[in-house]
Design a binder for these strands. Structure first.
Lengths: 145, 145
DNA sequence: TACACTATTTATAAAGATTATTATTTAATA
DNA sequence: TATTAAATAATAATCTTTATAAATAGTGTA
């Protein structure tokens, strides 16, 4: 979104010894300005005009790099494509059963659940994921006809 | 697990107009007696001895049937294979980062989260999913060397 | 029990997402 | 500018799941 975050991200990449290629820059920029958690293919198609020769593998490679450095998060849902989220602050997602739209929402991190799970199972807990499902306002309206 | 549950499941199938074929019976039985949320491929391989000519599609077809009737739940994790859980009572899963083992644990359903998400986003919430990740006791021990 | 009807199975191909491979190109640094 | 390791492009391969069509087999009925 903001130019500041983009500059910070570029600095993080540089300090990690990652080269800033035009394709890499474009993928990162698209992610930063995107509000809808795009898939790898959506990114690929969006940049097709600017980079007619770009390979899908390049998109995946760069997403992997960003993941490793912690610039983006991967959202995986079953057999469908992964989606990528450059907002790495603490938040959860609510997903529309009808159109698949993903919306962010905030909620105090569920530390209790982690603690209870740890006690009951003996696991050494690292993190958790939570998604809420439902029907978004748009789909509620269209189905009202 | 118990014979009673198996009989109930068969009755549910019959009353839904679903035929009880040997393959279907075997897949259901394997799921019922399985404690580790198997993948479609694991079920397929496990029944290979008994049904040398069985097709993978048959396993998927039957799992789909069981899903539709509500006898099993599908657990999807990114690009890896889906896993199937015949325990349809309210519970969550904790997953080992190291070996992938899935263990059940109970926790009061997170109604508050659903309510808050509904208020904040305007969605009409249907359900949620939550998974906790960590290292299981076995993997904690083996890594201690 | 035999028949008929339709669901189910099998075998195979196909789709779709992601990864692997390798030759070519290019960014960063001296 | 030259060098070198990293990144890209093009392609093939892998893996899970679904689609298709012909063959098989359950189940109700005569």
């Amino acid at each position: 979104m903001s130019e500041v975050r983009m500059q910070e991200a570029l600095a993080t990449l540089k300090s990690s010894g990652v080269r800033i290629t035009p394709q890499r820059h474009a993928v990162l920029e698209y992610l930063m300005h995107s509000m809808n958690h795009p898939t790898a293919d959506e990114i690929y198609k969006a940049l097709e005009g600017k980079f007619p020769n770009m390979s899908v593998a390049t998109v995946y490679n760069n997403l992997r790099v960003f993941l490793d450095i912690g610039l983006v998060r991967e959202l995986t849902y079953g057999d469908a494509s992964s989606r990528f989220d450059c907002n790495t602050t603490d938040h959860y997602h609510i997903i529309c059963n009808s159109c698949g739209k993903i919306v962010d929402f905030h909620y105090p991190a569920l530390d209790e659940v982690e603690q209870l799970a740890e006690q009951v199972t003996g696991f050494n807990v690292s993190h958790h994921r939570l998604e809420v499902y439902g029907t978004c306002t748009d789909c509620q309206n269209t189905s009202r006809h």
